[in-house]
């Protein structure tokens, strides 16, 4: 039952981040930041901080000519 143990380990967030590897860089970045913040802050506080990160990432994306 090793797989089961793996899914249930407390460092489940590391596994989540591993699964996010298949997504585009900006999506992955935003998702990881959201999880990291969610480990420490409540939902509303996380949402507020994410607004700034989204803005920054979208700007970078524009700068890359996307």
């Amino acid at each position: 039952m090793n797989d089961l143990g793996k899914t249930l380990l407390p460092d489940v967030n590391a596994l989540i981040i591993e699964k996010l590897n298949t997504y585009p860089a900006d999506v992955r970045e935003l998702a990881i930041q959201a999880i990291r913040l969610s480990e420490a802050y409540p939902e509303t506080a996380v949402a507020e901080q994410l607004q700034t990160i989204v803005r920054k990432l979208a700007k970078q994306q524009g700068g890359n000519g996307l």
Binding site: I16, E43, V46, L50, V54
Partner: peptide, 22 residues
């Protein structure tokens, strides 16, 4: 309860809020 993915669920809701606001 077994999943222990509280942070992930908070993150989904928080990103959902941002997305809705936008």
């Amino acid at each position: 309860n077994l999943l222990n993915v509280d942070a992930l669920e908070t993150a989904i809701r928080a990103v959902g809020r941002v997305s809705k606001a936008l």
